[in-house]
Design a binder for these strands. Structure first.
Length: 581
DNA sequence: GCCGTTTTCGGCCCGACTGTTTTCAGTCG
């Protein structure tokens, strides 16, 4: 490997080291120390090179003298003695075996030493040749299980987008509720509840008087292509698409501790259990054991109350500093769905939406909004039936009539304005000035070089009639990486001009993503959280945007669409007036 | 290897499931 520089690369090196040491049978505590340091480094908000320059490496949680030294050697020379030594013992590709479910360090080391299996590919070959089934200590049962695991590993190679996993989870929950009416609580936990943009498997937790009955019902659901394991209160099925789904069920009095445990993250959870130990107690999904007595926790609040700390919203539970702040009662208040007074980015049948303006407005009002910005595409996006100046004037008449009828609810007329490949805006200033709000989008030419692409975004941000830059990077969760923008330049210019940056809640976009939104917040930017809905139902996608904003610790006073109508209009007007043509 | 509201030594998250285990190791979340 080239010399690691980035936090992610340094973290990956320590993960690899931990894996290789586990093959060697090194102390689990030493291995866990390296793993903890790796996770800690991966979650750092600033480049590790900057921390090193400050001489503050050992201030990183889980990094002491030894690991700090190894980090320095890694940065300077690309390796360190222990890494070289253990790699001489086990080729790094042997670590691939650990990713196969059912193979841990002991079996991986045995496979390498007895059969010379040094990679996932070699494992597959050995299985095909029947060498594993024939080896004492492994046998046909093990070989079968591993072969099946390898197949699903390849099929469901990576994590699936949140926008795919969450609806599946909600379906499973509805189906199970129907079959087991005695279920008291049930929720999608894990990375779904934390609104991570991709999901490794579905975690569902439930409270019911008879856990076993719920487990039995779950494993016989038609959605279960395969049952991987099941016991008294836990089970795991595999869905048709290869995604795993775990269910944990306990009686109602344990619901709170079970939900905390199921929500994670793993490292948040471990940190809580450490806190319990410091107080002479033990925390598990059953509750808190203190002086030999188990105190079940029926609500999450009870768990956090035991530690005298605030309860972080699930998207903040990543052990990236939230626990320390919660202990000091200094957790920032983050924006919630109920803080939002309206949606700033929606479409109708006037461009490529599926619902009329009236349908969108009624659905928005039913959500409890005070206002809705209708932002159909501008003419340049021909595929979306974009609007020109004449059609915008026609649309204004329809909106005015609707507003007369729906008052005090208000539909604001806006546009999602194309920023052309040349950098020019798609409509003239006179047309834009007549609109209530303008959000600008870079849809085309996302493969342009960094300088040109960034210049387009900056031109839009600087334009006095542009209020919001929509989905700023253009990335898609399911694959498209997004344009090579200079994000720091975009944050700086947006902060300077007061142009808001969007967190687009459409689950395939989530753009800005969590880390970008956090950086934008730090740079002093104003944000919007939008659904980008193309039909009435999709207005609910705002929840994904709010989840992403919570992951970025965005407070409500930095989100434009928490403003009531009069303040929003005044804010837009004032911002336009302050920026001269 | 790291760390400290009992500690600079002696701990290190916790419980469930699987397999072939006749009392527990390995793996997982």
């Amino acid at each position: 490997m080239a010399r690691p520089r980035s936090n992610a690369e340094i973290a990956a090196t320590f993960r690899l080291l931990a894996d290789l040491l586990s093959l060697r049978g090194e102390s689990i505590y030493k291995i866990n120390a390296y793993r903890r340091a790796a996770e800690s480094i991966a979650a750092l908000p600033e480049p590790i090179t900057a921390i090193r320059a400050r001489g503050a490496l050992d201030e990183i949680p889980g990094v002491g003298k030894e690991i700090a030294l190894k980090i320095e050697q890694l940065l300077d020379t690309g390796s360190f003695p222990l890494l070289d030594e253990v790699q001489a013992e086990f080729p790094r590709s042997v670590a691939e075996l650990l990713a196969v479910p059912g193979i841990g360090p002991k079996r991986a080391a045995a496979l390498y030493k007895t059969l010379g299996i040094d990679s996932k590919a070699a494992l597959q070959r050995a299985l095909d040749e029947g060498r594993i089934a024939a080896t004492p200590g492994f046998g046909p049962t093990f070989a079968e299980r591993i072969a099946a695991a390898l197949k699903t590993l390849d099929a469901a190679d990576t994590r699936v987008p949140l926008g795919v996993a969450r609806p599946l989870a909600l379906q499973l929950i509805a189906a199970l509720r129907e079959r087991v009416p005695a279920i008291v609580h049930i929720e999608a936990a894990g990375s779904i509840r934390r609104f991570r943009e991709t999901v490794g498997d579905i975690d569902i937790v439930a409270a019911a008087p008879d856990p076993r009955a719920a487990v039995e019902a779950f494993i016989t659901l038609p959605q279960a292509a395969r049952v991987e394991m099941h016991g008294e209160n836990r089970c795991r099925i595999v869905l048709d698409n290869g995604l795993g789904a775990d269910l944990w069920v306990l009686p109602e009095q344990h619901w709170g501790s079970l939900l905390v445990h199921g929500t994670g993250s793993k490292y948040h959870d471990i940190r809580l259990r450490d806190l319990a130990i410091e107080r002479g107690a033990r925390l598990s999904e059953y509750g808190i054991e203190h002086n030999g007595v188990l105190h079940p926790c029926a609500s999450e609040q009870e768990v956090y109350d035991f530690f005298g700390m605030q309860m972080p919203p699930p998207p903040m539970r990543e052990n990236t500093g939230e626990i320390e702040l919660a202990l000091r009662h200094r957790l920032p208040r983050v924006v919630t769905v109920t803080d939002l007074r309206g949606d700033m980015h929606t479409h109708s049948t006037w461009s490529d939406g599926k619902a009329s303006i009236r349908e969108m407005a009624l659905a928005a009002r039913a959500r409890g909004y005070e206002w809705l910005c209708l932002t159909d595409h501008s003419r340049g996006l021909g595929v979306a039936n974009g609007l020109d100046a004449r059609r915008l004037r026609e649309q204004r008449r329809e909106i005015d009539a609707l507003n007369a009828e729906l008052a005090p609810f208000r539909v604001l007329q806006g546009v999602e304005l194309e920023v052309r490949s040349s950098g020019a805006l798609d409509l003239d200033d006179e047309t834009l000035a007549a609109l209530d709000i303008v959000i600008a989008s870079v849809h085309s030419g996302l493969d342009q070089p960094r300088a040109k692409l960034t210049a387009r975004a900056l031109a839009a941000i600087r334009h006095p009639l542009v209020d919001v830059l929509a989905h700023p990077t253009g990335r898609k969760v399911s694959g498209r990486p997004g344009g090579d923008f200079d994000m720091d330049a975009i944050y700086a210019e947006a902060a300077r001009t007061g142009t808001a940056l969007e967190i687009d809640g459409s689950p395939d976009r989530l753009d800005l993503r969590d880390v970008h939104a956090r950086a934008a917040l730090a740079a002093g930017c104003l944000l919007t959280i939008d659904s980008d809905a193309h039909d009435a139902e999709a207005l609910a996608n705002i929840e994904y945007g709010v989840g992403t904003a919570q992951r970025a610790w965005i407070p409500p006073d930095r989100v434009l669409n928490t403003l009531p109508l009069d303040k929003l209009l005044a804010r837009l007007k004032r911002n336009r007036a302050q920026r001269s043509f």
